[in-house]
């Protein structure tokens, strides 16, 4: 021991759990890799191009306007970019995808003050913006190309030019069942595997489920939210199906559209979801209910995005009403006291 030994003085606790925010973020990115790989398998180069464009939009915006130059490294901008790319159609013009990333990052997150401050999920803010700005492009679903390497649409359309619809389009399973001339429910097996039409990364329910379970097991995701969403969606849509109001079977509801990706990856965004377990059950219930309502009665085939955004707005309220019960007090007493 020498006199020169320097020690640090910190407040307790002096040991920390090995989990870190950065680690959580990057493990989310890793869990998405199978989904990304499958999207390339299903949709060819178009898929990866769309993802790259939206990721680029997010990363560049975070780097330029983020709170500090190192904030890109925390991985949150990467997640936003990936998720946005994954919920766009494969034939989507790249400049629009890029713009969606910029908007989602800038107006969905950075203007609130960056990581941890935003109210709405930034990827969904980006998508909502694109839905409003380019309603045609974002609902143009190619029906598959002859060769794997063909582009799925006019990915390279110039900015502010109308993309040329030179591919054959087809409806997604949800759109088909709702608005199609000859509505047929897509077999559940196709929905599970992903051999269907849809957004870049929303087709394979199985891979999303695996990624979500991986995160849940590692404690990087609050499993109460997806479970609550699925139970609500299943029960509510099952009820409507049984009494004959809707043509969507509960299994079809679960595995079609953006519900899997939304429930596992977007609703569970820690920043924009409630704090307590009770709050998470409530949050998931709201998303499930709204999704079913929009899907059955709404003007759009899909309702996951707006359901999550609407429930995001309610999170501060949910947090208020689901304050934990203080140790050594009873619930009734507390309510009477306040």
């Amino acid at each position: 021991m020498t006199e020169k030994t320097k020690v640090i003085i910190t407040a307790s606790p002096h040991v920390r759990s090995p989990d870190s925010t950065t680690k959580i973020m990057w493990s989310v990115v890793i869990s998405l890799l199978p989904v990304i790989a499958s999207s390339i398998y299903f949709f060819g180069p178009s898929a990866i191009l769309v993802i790259i464009a939206s990721v680029a939009g997010c990363l560049i915006t975070e780097r330029m306007f983020g709170s500090n130059p190192g904030s890109v490294a925390d991985g949150s901008a990467m997640i936003t970019g990936l998720l946005l790319g994954l919920c766009l159609p494969p034939g989507f013009p790249l400049w629009m995808a890029f713009l969606g990333g910029v908007f989602g990052m800038g107006f969905g997150k950075l203007i609130y003050g960056g990581l941890g401050q935003n109210i709405f999920n930034p990827a969904l803010v980006g998508r909502a913006f694109l839905q409003a700005a380019f309603p045609v492009a974002i609902t143009t679903w190619p029906s598959g190309t002859q060769h794997w390497w063909n582009l799925q649409g006019d990915n390279f359309a110039l900015p502010f030019m109308t993309p040329r619809p030179d591919t054959v389009t087809a409806a997604t399973p949800l759109g088909n069942l709702k608005f199609g001339d000859d509505p047929v429910a897509t077999p559940i097996l196709d929905l599970l595997l992903g051999t269907i039409n849809g957004s870049v990364g929303e087709t394979s329910a199985v891979l999303i489920l695996l990624g979500g379970i991986y995160l849940a097991v590692r404690g990087h995701l609050n499993w109460h939210i997806p479970v609550s969403i699925f139970v609500t969606t299943f029960v509510v849509s099952g009820l409507f199906y049984v009494i004959g109001i809707s043509q969507f079977s509960p299994w079809f509801m679960l595995f079609s559209g953006g519900l899997m990706l939304g429930a596992w990856y977007m609703a569970t965004d820690m920043v924009t979801s409630p704090l307590s377990t009770k709050g998470c059950w409530l949050f998931g219930f709201g998303i499930g209910l709204l999704t079913v309502i929009i899907r059955i009665w709404g003007g759009l085939p899909e309702g996951v995005m707006y359901s999550i955004l609407l429930m995001n707005a309610l999170v501060p309220f949910i947090n208020r009403v689901t304050q934990p019960r203080l140790f050594g007090t009873s619930k009734k007493k507390k309510e009477a006291g306040e």
């Binding site: 870190s20 925010t21 950065t22 959580i24 925390d74 949150s76 960056g114 990581l115 941890g116 401050q117 609050n222 820690m270 920043v271 979801s273 409630p274 704090l275 307590s276 377990t277 998470c280």
Partner: peptide
């Protein structure tokens, strides 16, 4: 120290 991400 990173920003709080409200993970709960």
């Amino acid at each position: 120290i990173l920003p709080c991400i409200r993970c709960g």
